[in-house]
Nucleic acid binder design. Structure first.
Length: 824
RNA sequence: GCCGAAGUGGUGGAAUUGGUAGACACGCAAGAUUCAGGUUCUUGUGCGGGCAACCGUGUGCUGGUUCGAGUCCAGUCUUCGGCACCA
């Protein structure tokens, strides 16, 4: 151990030590308690950023802590390696996405190793490797067989800049989640995963995930968007087929006076009379041209057009004109809305604009609604009126009764509707997993036989950036013979959404070398579920929903026996500097390399853990980093300077200890308790570190250090200090642990335990209040009972002025804490 | 509009069960060390008053419950995040 703390020397040494020892590799061992800790794997964008540093520092504390606690810890790392930036870089550099990706991986792996993160590098995987994606193709084929993967023509979200399709989850306020371009609707033949089949289970299970943050669960529930209602048939005059609507307000059915269809509704044109045709077509054209962002703007004007047709309200027999309306969405419910202008604000505005009739069917108790003078729709509950046999009921009760009635009469049925749409996974890109499908003119859609897997992504491709998907230009890839009839056929050139890879990688980590299938069931059963998952909140409804879906699919395919992939989820906050998220465009990025170069990885880790609790945003402060570095220097100096005093330290002889010795021991044991609880139960690393800092202050202030009676106490203090620091700042802790005479690495040491008797104080500080205001503090023995406390409080001289000449009405006593004297 | 989270010193943040508000840091100020700068060390640091002991006051705002409220309740304002013509 050198006299001066030089982070680089220490960190290089121990990183090499861990590397040669393979310290963090783990094998399945059913005799040991397992702990699967996972941080969201990174996209190999080039270099790690502060968000990674924070995410992985948090994870590493838990991994190292659990190991010291005796768990068999699985802590893997890999690369979410398919994706568009690689393709863009290839175009720019006239290179290849694979080369760019693997170079980035090599560089970033080096960076992670320089952080001293305790990963099982033997399990590293990259999703762009055929060893990985071939199994995903197999899963796809099995999903296809079960009807969970299917192709259909549909309007899809299309990003003109990325020239590819986006899933609903990847559109944010009408813009591409990646490049921020305006998303347009395009009609395309696309592959989908039937996530809607699992909508109910995905929703139900959110109520059984106590280890997830409530806000993530809420977001997922909102996204799934389950609502209960009825599907009701409205016959159309002069047509055999009626219009189906979905409504959650069947209690307002008697007030439905017209019908609104989405402009894209399949019956829109068939219901249009010849004389209405020009206006209708013009309207449809206009809506199509309107950008989605404009269409969802707050003050967007409700507009529509009459088709000329009428449908019949099945309970009132009223003739209802059928309109097309710009606010009706084609992909929610049935794309048709029964319009009740008195009790729905949009219908109200629409009716006023086009002079359509209003009929009140729910009367509030406080006021009397008049259709001619109403200024807005009444949407709350009330008493049913003008609703035949349901008059007089509360509207809430009528909901159920009308639903029953509709079912009995065969007019409609109770149904549930979800906001969640199927997951469109086709991407018109090269750098992704090829969808294993062949198109044959004779046989149609033919899945690639399992024995012909993998469909290898061809490497010999040139990237110009023009003309759409480069994969479609590779003749050798596209032209195949049909596996069924042997005739010439074409290969699917769409690749899978890269979110597919991240939907099951946590299962592959359990058995990355398994060659008989995607998942070795036995090994997966030992490790799964992930005990603790850590990542950014931005994945609340993207990755985290897809991963849950995939786990359930894989369960139903027989690959694993679990329902949910992640038992506990920690969503760490963003790294903020100067009031904004770190980004190149804002020019406020701090480069981890420079930080590690200047201060070392331990300082980078310590600061990112100390500055804020994990789930909060972290405000970056260069001065704060200095502070963390200073602290490590103080620790180093403290251990180094104290070392000579420990030479003759034996075991602690309690009877010979002075007050100072006892006091230091108390601090040490209290700190062990505090740090253990903060790390284990709350992940409050900031307060854990604060407690360690206090302990360092106490050891530093400890006098007399030279008293030989105290050598053993000092030794206990320093060893505890180093052990407590080990999960946070592993390099310096390893060096100090060695300096204290331990040959085995600190990462294999046992987490220190505390003795409650030693941690307990003999004396306590009792707070004395008068009428709830702090007036004095007195020190009393722990054994002091209520009478003694009251006695001491009432006779305390600082309390006297406040009770003199007043009547003591009550004295409240909380043993060991406070006395409150109530005077009046 | 709906759902969720959060408002505490100059700053990041503590206060775990209703019981000392501001732990631990950063910053700042004074002093020591130094030729000097940096480092390091000591002391102080919510605000107002006072030489001081101390007193008053203080957790977005207004009320309430309680012996006692940053914490619980009601209302309200602000900020951030998510969803949104969802029928």
């Amino acid at each position: 151990m050198e006299g001066k703390y030089i982070p680089k020397h220490v960190e290089d040494k121990w990183q090499q030590f861990w590397e040669t020892r393979k310290s963090f590799e783990s094998v399945e061992d059913t005799s040991r308690r397992k702990y699967y800790l996972l941080e969201m794997f990174p996209y190999p964008s080039g270099r790690i950023h502060m968000g990674h540093v924070r995410n992985y520092s948090i994870g590493d504390v838990i991994a190292r802590f659990k190991r010291m606690k005796g768990y068999n810890v699985l802590h893997p790392m890999g690369w979410d390696a398919f994706g568009m930036p690689a393709e863009n870089a290839a175009i720019q550099n006239k290179s290849h996405p694979a080369r760019w990706t693997y170079e980035n991986i090599d560089y970033m792996r080096g960076q992670l190793k320089k952080m001293g993160l305790s990963y099982a590098w033997d399990r590293e995987l990259a999703t762009c490797s055929v060893d990985y994606y071939q199994w995903e193709q197999l899963i796809f084929l099995q999903m296809y067989k079960k009807g969970l993967a299917y192709k259909r023509n549909s309007f899809v979200n299309w990003c003109p800049k990325c020239e590819t399709v986006l899933a609903n989850e990847q559109v944010e306020e009408g813009r591409c989640w990646r490049c921020d371009s305006e998303v347009v609707q395009k009609e395309l033949d696309q592959w989908f995963f039937r996530i809607t089949d699992y909508a109910d289970e995905l929703l139900e299970c959110t109520y059984n995930l106590p280890g997830w943050p409530e806000r993530v669960l809420t977001m997922q529930r909102n996204w799934i968007g389950k609502s209960y209602g009825c599907e009701i048939d409205f016959p159309v005059e002069g047509h055999l087929a009626g219009i189906k609507v979905f409504t959650t307000r069947q209690d307002t059915l008697y007030g439905a006076t017209f019908m609104s269809l989405a402009p894209e509704h399949p019956m829109a044109l068939t219901l249009t009379l010849p004389e209405n045709r020009p206006a209708v077509e013009a309207f449809i054209e206009k809506v199509k041209k309107t950008e989605k962002t404009a269409r969802t703007a707050e003050d967007f004007e409700k507009e529509g057009v009459f088709t000329g047709s009428y449908c019949i309200n099945p309970v009132t027999n009223r003739r209802m004109p059928v309109y097309l309306a710009n606010f009706v969405l084609t992909d929610y419910g049935t794309g048709a809305v029964m319009a009740v202008p008195t009790h729905d604000q949009r219908d109200f505005e629409f009716a006023r604009k086009y002079g359509l009739p209003l009929q009140v069917v729910i009367q509030p108790e406080a006021e009397s609604l008049d259709p001619t003078s109403m200024a807005a729709a009444y949407t709350a509950e009330g008493i049913m009126v003008n609703s035949g046999q349901f008059d007089g009921l509360k509207s809430g009760d009528a909901k159920e009764k009308i639903a029953d009635y509709l079912e009995k009469e065969g007019i409609g049925k109770k149904t549930v509707n979800f906001r969640l749409r199927d997951w469109g996974i086709s991407r018109q890109r090269y750098w992704g997993n090829p969808i294993p499908i062949i198109y044959c003119d004779l046989c149609g859609v033919v899945p690639v036989p399992e024995k012909d897997l993998p469909v290898v992504l061809p490497m010999d491709v040139t990237f110009t950036g023009e003309g759409g998907n480069p994969l479609a230009t590779v003749e050798d890839f596209v032209n195949v013979t049909c596996p069924q009839c042997g005739e010439l056929a074409r290969r699917e050139t769409d690749t899978m959404d890269t979110f597919v890879e991240s939907s099951w990688y946590f299962l592959r980590y359990c058995c990355p070398d398994f060659i008989a299938g995607p998942i070795d069931k036995e090994r997966a059963e030992y490790w799964m579920s992930v005990d603790q998952y850590i990542g950014g909140i931005e994945h609340a409804v993207l990755h985290l929903l897809y991963a849950r879906f995939f786990t359930k699919v894989l369960r139903d395919l027989g690959y694993c026996a679990i329902d949910e992939p992640f038992t506990n989820l920690l969503t760490q906050g963003m790294v903020i500097k100067d009031g904004a998220k770190m980004s190149k465009s804002k020019g406020n990025v701090v480069d981890p390399n420079a930080l590690i170069e200047k201060y070392g990885a331990d300082t980078a880790r310590l600061f990112s853990l100390f500055a804020a609790p994990p789930e909060k945003d972290l405000d970056w402060s260069d001065q704060g980093v200095d502070g963390s570095y200073r602290f490590l220097n103080r620790v180093w100096k403290l251990v180094h300077d104290t070392l000579p005093l420990l030479a003759n330290a034996g075991s602690i002889d309690v009877s010979s200890l002075g007050e100072e010795g006892k006091g230091l021991r108390r601090t040490v044991h209290k700190t062990i308790r505090k740090v253990t609880e903060d790390v284990e139960e709350r992940f409050h690393f900031n307060t854990a570190i604060a407690a360690i800092m206090e302990m360092v202050n106490a050891i530093q202030a400890f006098e007399p250090k030279n008293d030989p009676r105290h050598a053993a106490v000092l030794k206990e203090a320093l060893e505890s200090l180093v052990l407590l620091l080990a999960p946070f700042v592993p390099h310096i802790a390893s060096e100090l642990w060695e300096g204290l005479g331990h040959a085995e690495g600190v990462e294999t040491a046992d987490w220190p335990s505390y003795d409650p008797a030693v941690a307990a104080s003999e004396e306590l500080l009792i707070v004395v209040q008068v009428n709830g205001k702090l007036r004095s503090k007195i020190t009393m023995a722990v054994s002091a009972g209520e009478p003694e406390m009251k006695e001491a409080a009432l006779s305390d001289e600082r309390v006297q002025p406040f009770i003199e000449g007043k009547t003591v009405r009550k004295v409240i006593c909380v043993p060991g804490k406070l006395v409150n004297i109530v005077v009046g």
